[in-house]
Amino acid sequence: MSDDLEPISPREAVDLYVSHRELEISAKTLQNHKYRLNAFVEWCNEVGIDNLNELTGRDLHRYRVWRQQDVNIVTLRGQLATLRVFLEFCASIDAVEPGMRERVKLPDVDRGDEARDEMLDADRAHKIIGYLERYKRASREHVIMAILWHTGIRLGSLRAVDLEDYEPKDQCFWLRHRPDTDTPLKNQEPAERAIALDDYYCDVLDEYIRFHRHDVVDDHGRKPLVTSDQGRLSSGQIRSEVYRLTQPCMIEGCPHDRDPNDCEATEYGHYYDCPSSLSPHTIRRGAITYQLREDIPEKIISDRCDVSSEVLDRHYDRRTDREKMEQRRDFIEDL
């Protein structure tokens, strides 16, 4: 232990860290950091670490082994990433030795495994859409994010919509299976349907078409609804847009303690490298869960989002058992 360190308890250090970050990150992110670090404080209390000056690399390994008994690998990686940021702060206030954060080894996580546990929560979705409403209203980015969240449709479904499929008077657009011209729907003809839109989303689409949509056709002579200056967007272009739009630093501070001006993940082709960026499918999962929490019947969500009840329950519904119980209670109170 270095003689330059000043004694401090784990709890006091966490309290100082929280106070330090509360103006830099959102309340939701700060709450997540407090939850993750509370587990570390609990472990310190269990093993008798009363002074962070005494913390060693071996202690950090023991904490990781202790924590991985209760959480999956995706959650573990997130909690250890927060611990690393915390330890960097602790080094700056002479609570731990410099370089202690590098002794926290993050587990490798397959992106596919991570995606199965990820979803865009409603609070974050509304912040992103609110930001786009304020600064980029009716832009292509606004349309992509707003429509994916409002409808819960797949990336390929959004890409498949033509300008003539949108019916502003009836406030809807149609999804058509057109495999011969490069826009198939995942579940083919049975997935063809009309998607109802609220007033706000129709207004955004109307403005986009009037002011920002490129008047172009694709390789098959069709007019896409959402365009680039070259024609219909590819799946990769839409996916890249979503990765960029879900980076936290677009609307608030970076939770990974990076400088956005120097971060490679803010450069085109590297948006995916941000640990907090999300894929289009996490928007679908979050949108479906949000609709379920808003008491929209499962049958309506199943039809609107083209997902069977069995698959909805197994892969999309992220409500807790208690949430489901409380929603059922609302329907039986007057029986």
Rank of each mutant, 00 (worst) to 15 (best):
residue 2 S to H: 13
residue 3 D to T: 15
residue 19 S to H: 14
residue 19 S to W: 15
residue 20 H to C: 12
residue 21 R to I: 14
residue 24 E to A: 13
residue 26 S to Q: 10
residue 43 W to H: 01
residue 50 D to L: 10
residue 51 N to D: 08
residue 53 N to I: 15
residue 61 H to N: 14
residue 63 Y to M: 04
residue 64 R to G: 14
residue 67 R to C: 03
residue 67 R to S: 03
residue 73 I to P: 01
residue 75 T to C: 08
residue 80 L to R: 07
residue 82 T to L: 09
residue 88 E to I: 09
residue 90 C to A: 04
residue 96 V to Q: 05
residue 103 R to Y: 13
residue 108 D to E: 13
residue 113 D to E: 15
residue 117 D to P: 10
residue 120 L to R: 00
residue 136 K to T: 12
residue 138 A to Y: 02
residue 146 A to R: 06
residue 149 W to C: 09
residue 149 W to P: 02
residue 152 G to I: 01
residue 155 L to V: 01
residue 155 L to C: 07
residue 155 L to P: 00
residue 159 R to W: 01
residue 160 A to Q: 01
residue 160 A to H: 06
residue 166 Y to Q: 08
residue 169 K to E: 05
residue 179 P to D: 11
residue 180 D to S: 09
residue 180 D to F: 15
residue 182 D to R: 04
residue 184 P to I: 11
residue 189 E to A: 09
residue 189 E to K: 07
residue 190 P to M: 00
residue 192 E to P: 06
residue 194 A to E: 14
residue 212 H to N: 05
residue 220 H to P: 02
residue 223 K to A: 09
residue 227 T to N: 13
residue 230 Q to M: 15
residue 243 Y to H: 02
residue 245 L to F: 03
residue 250 M to A: 15
residue 253 G to S: 08
residue 254 C to T: 02
residue 255 P to Q: 01
residue 259 D to R: 07
residue 263 C to K: 03
residue 264 E to Q: 15
residue 280 P to L: 10
residue 283 I to D: 00
residue 284 R to P: 06
residue 285 R to Q: 07
residue 285 R to H: 08
residue 288 I to D: 00
residue 289 T to C: 01
residue 296 I to G: 02
residue 313 D to T: 09
residue 317 D to P: 04
residue 318 R to I: 05
residue 320 T to R: 05
residue 321 D to N: 08
residue 321 D to T: 11
residue 323 E to Q: 03
residue 324 K to I: 15
